[in-house]
Each structure stands twice: as structure tokens, then as C-alpha cells.
Amino acid sequence: MSAIYRREMGAFFTSGIAYVFLTVFWLVSGIFFFTGTIMSNTTNVANMFSSMFFVVLCLIPVLTMKLLSEEKKNKTDQGLLTAPISLWDIVLGKYFAALTLYIIAESIVFVYAFILNYLGEIAWTPLLGNYFAMLFLGAAFIAVGLFVSSLTENQMASAVVSLVLLFVLYLSEMLVSGFANGNWFKKGIYKIVTSVAFYSRYIEFTRGVFSLTSVLFFISVAFLFNFFTVKVLEKRRWS
């Protein structure tokens, strides 16, 4: 696992994806930080964090798009699958590499925190809570992106499909919001969709509620999709 993790980290930087990802992430989050916090003369970072949901949603597919699709396209998966390692080693090595880069990117909020600390009083607890919420959100999204990447040989298809998938997950709540007061069937759908919703869970954190259920939810999603990815690789071998 560590060999794959290190290679993948190296590949992020040699292929330039890391630079694009970090630049865009820091640029856009900087804009949100400036407009949401500095310009409104507040040390409340909730605004910034709620906007960051969309940055994460749009950028994670860039991070995950080539992780497995490129291996398949260049036939390098033959090297990995015939090496004395398990499929979990392969998937988790790649997963944690992407997660590491994501953590580097989102840790920029500490820089913002120090800026705020210099300008005024800052509430550290909600900031840390939000930081970890974003981390778990990303962990779940990366697993979804990695899963999509395992389905195709085409990087672009992988990126677009993950983006659409994440977007649908986000929009699903709004689609069913009218069902909240309907009959039992509509209520049932509403309940199911909202229970697997990402956005409202995340937004909860920015309002200062550190919900362990949601943390558990994100971790479960991450685990589940990594499990799916392993199954996809396994199925390819058996087909």
C-alpha cells in the first residue's frame, strides 16, 4: 500500500494535477474567505465553509479522475494486479494519496485562521469542527470519485460522471423537498433521500453542530465506495 501511495503522490506532482488542484482550491477559497469573512467584518467562518462545499464538489473529480482509469488505459494495472499485493492495497493506496492532497489543500483554512486571529478574536472550536467536517466530506467524495474512475478508461468521462454524480447527490434533497408534507409514499421517499443527503449534513456543521452521526455517515460512505471499487477490480478479473 505504501508503495502505491508514494507513487501516486509523486504522480500528482509530476502530472501537474496537484498544482492545478491546489491553485484553484486556494484561489477560490481565498475569494470566499475574503468576500464571506473579511469584507463582512466578521470572524465567523461559517459563510466561507458553506460556500466551500461547491469547491470541494467541483474539484474532487479532478483529483480522482485518473487514479484508476489511467492505469487501465495504459495497461499498468497489469503490473499492479500481478504483484503480490491485495486489491485493498491498491485501492487504499490511491485513496489515501488523494486524501492527503485534499488535506493539504483544505489546511489553507489555518492560514486564514491566523489572519483572522491577527485582525480580531477567533472562535477556534467551530473552526476546527468545520475543518474536520470538510475533511470527512472530502473523504466521502474522494471514495465516490475513485469508484467512478474504476469504471472507465477515459479520464474525462470519469471526471464528468463523478461531477454529475456528486451534483445529483447534492440536488436530490432539493428535488424532494416538496415531498416533506405529502402522503406516506412521498414522505418515505423524502426520508430516504434526506437520510443519504450530503449537503444538509455538511451545512449542519457550519451552523456549529458537530454531529457524530454525520461524521459516521461520511466515513461509511467512504468505506462503502472503496469497497465497491475493490469489487469492480475483482469483477474485471473474473469477467
Binding site: S15, N74, K75, T76, D77, Q78, G79, T82
Partner: peptide, 12 residues
Amino acid sequence: YLPEIPPLYVDM
């Protein structure tokens, strides 16, 4: 194993 197409990471 040396497959038909060597499994090389060309950017390394």
C-alpha cells in the same frame, strides 16, 4: 511477469 505491453508509468 512481462506482459505484452510493459506496465510502465511513463512519467517516471
